[in-house]
């Protein structure tokens, strides 16, 4: 753990992410109001002691909505990246291990996927399906695995010629064993680092979709749709856009810092210092 806490940047990444986790888990206890309670008497109130982040156009407490919104951001990030990592690692491992035609087919498929602007692909898919949080997570996951595939494939290709892989192969280790015991564990570092960095971009994509009204549907709150509501009042109710914007920025930054820190931590050469 020493390495994680030694670097102040990594440490702040950990603190940010732990804070977001804490908020997401304890949102019902932390929020002063019901996030969906409409109070016509307190529309568009600026931040004050009773409403930390003011109220929105329907008189709902922005602070409470923000706390509940963190759950969506977190969930979308983790599930979408989980799907992308599993698909990406699987295809990348097969391409990098077997090479030849299989590799060519998988990589050309990756090229095709990459040539489609992801955001518009997601928009198109969402347009056909009912926009719900689960659909969003699945669609983001299904359209963002290509980076992981390329990475795992490249890692496998370079590891393939290492002497310990040759040694295991000469000794008769099966393909499955070679992949699961020798190649995957040694490619884990970049996979984990890109996954954590990928969460950041998934959070951004979800915010973008919700902002366009195709993401999380009202009355459920997410940072993205709070931002959308805010755009109508941006000239006289700055708090509606500022706080969700800041929250997204800080969370994305937190994941990025954590990702960088993990890169150092997962180097096996540091194993002793960790004990």
């Amino acid at each position: 753990m020493k390495i994680l806490t030694q670097n102040p940047l990594t440490l702040s990444g950990i603190i940010i992410i732990s804070l977001v986790l804490f908020i997401a888990v304890f949102a019902p206890w932390l929020s002063p109001y019901d996030p969906n309670y409409i109070d016509i008497h307190s529309i568009l109130l600026p931040p004050s002691v009773s409403h930390f982040m003011g109220t929105d156009g329907l008189g709902r407490d922005v602070f409470s909505r923000m706390l509940y919104g963190s759950r969506i951001s977190l969930l979308v990030g983790i599930v979408a990246v989980g799907i992308a990592t599993v698909i990406g690692t699987f295809l990348g491992a097969i391409a990098g291990f077997y090479r030849g035609y299989i590799d060519s087919i998988i990589m050309r498929f990756v090229d095709i996927m990459l040539s489609i602007p992801t955001f518009f692909l997601i928009l198109a898919v969402i347009a056909f399906l009912t926009p719900s949080i689960w659909n969003i997570m699945i669609v983001i996951g299904l359209t963002s695995w290509m980076g992981v595939t390329r990475l795992v494939r490249a890692e496998f290709l370079s590891l393939r010629n290492r002497e310990y892989i040759l040694a295991a192969e000469a000794m008769g280790a099966s393909d499955y064993r070679l992949i699961s015991k020798h190649l995957l564990p040694n490619s884990l570092t970049p996979i984990i680092v890109t996954s954590v960095l990928g969460i950041a971009s998934a959070v951004l994509t979800e915010s973008g979709l919700s902002f366009l009204g195709l993401g999380v549907q009202a009355p459920q709150s997410s940072w993205g749709n709070i931002l959308t509501d805010g755009k109508e009042y941006i000239q006289f109710a700055w708090w509606l856009s500022l706080f969700p914007g800041l929250a997204i920025l800080i969370t994305v930054l937190g994941y990025n810092l954590l990702g960088e820190g993990l890169r150092d931590l997962l180097d096996p050469k540091n194993k002793n210092q960790r004990k």
Binding site: A170, A173, K181, N186
Partner: peptide, 27 residues
């Protein structure tokens, strides 16, 4: 069996010595 030039890279850096030596037996 084979023995290579660079002993350090002939062993999986993420396995301990017991796993490295027992691998041929398990296989």
């Amino acid at each position: 069996q084979m023995i290579f030039q660079d002993p350090v890279s002939s062993m999986n850096p993420r396995m301990n010595i017991e796993s490295i030596l027992s691998e041929p037996l398990w296989t």
